[in-house]
Computed example of a mutant assay.
Amino acid sequence: MAVDTILLGALYLVVQLFANKIISTSTIGRFKWLSFSGGVAVSYVFVYVLPSLHKQQDNLSKDSGLTMESELYILGLVGLLVFYGVHKAAERASRKHAKGEGSFFWIQIAFFVVYNMLISYHIFASDIKGIEAVFYGIAVGLHFMAVSHDLWREDAARYEKLGRYLLAAGILAGWAVGVFAPMPSYMLGIVFAFISGAMIMNVLQKELPSEENAHFRTFLGGAVGYTALTIALKLFFNW
Score class of each variant (00 low, 15 high):
1 M>N: 14
2 A>G: 14
3 V>E: 09
3 V>I: 13
4 D>V: 13
7 L>E: 08
7 L>W: 05
8 L>F: 04
10 A>P: 04
10 A>F: 14
11 L>K: 01
12 Y>C: 03
15 V>N: 00
15 V>C: 09
16 Q>G: 13
20 N>F: 00
26 S>I: 03
29 G>H: 12
29 G>P: 07
30 R>M: 12
31 F>N: 15
32 K>A: 15
34 L>G: 06
36 F>D: 00
42 V>R: 08
42 V>K: 04
44 Y>E: 05
44 Y>W: 11
49 V>T: 14
51 P>D: 10
54 H>G: 07
56 Q>A: 14
59 N>S: 13
59 N>Q: 11
61 S>A: 12
72 L>I: 05
77 L>K: 00
79 G>L: 10
82 V>K: 06
82 V>P: 01
83 F>W: 10
84 Y>T: 10
87 H>Y: 13
88 K>N: 11
89 A>K: 15
89 A>H: 11
91 E>T: 08
92 R>D: 14
93 A>E: 12
93 A>C: 12
94 S>E: 13
94 S>C: 03
98 A>V: 13
100 G>T: 07
101 E>V: 01
101 E>R: 11
103 S>L: 07
108 Q>K: 09
108 Q>C: 01
109 I>P: 08
110 A>L: 12
111 F>V: 00
112 F>Q: 04
115 Y>Q: 09
117 M>N: 05
120 S>G: 05
130 G>Q: 09
130 G>P: 02
131 I>G: 03
142 L>M: 11
144 F>Y: 09
153 R>Y: 01
153 R>H: 07
154 E>R: 13
154 E>Y: 00
155 D>S: 13
157 A>C: 00
158 R>H: 14
159 Y>W: 07
159 Y>C: 10
160 E>G: 04
161 K>T: 12
161 K>H: 11
164 R>E: 10
166 L>Q: 05
168 A>C: 09
172 L>Y: 10
173 A>P: 06
174 G>C: 04
175 W>T: 09
176 A>M: 06
178 G>E: 08
184 P>H: 02
184 P>V: 01
185 S>P: 00
186 Y>P: 00
187 M>F: 15
188 L>K: 06
189 G>H: 06
189 G>M: 06
192 F>N: 09
193 A>G: 02
198 A>K: 04
198 A>Y: 08
201 M>S: 15
202 N>P: 06
202 N>D: 06
203 V>L: 08
205 Q>C: 00
206 K>L: 15
208 L>M: 13
212 E>P: 02
212 E>K: 15
218 T>Q: 08
221 G>H: 07
221 G>A: 04
222 G>R: 09
223 A>I: 06
224 V>A: 15
227 T>Y: 08
227 T>S: 10
229 L>S: 11
229 L>I: 05
231 I>K: 07
232 A>V: 05
234 K>I: 09
234 K>Q: 13
236 F>A: 15
237 F>A: 06
237 F>W: 07
239 W>F: 03
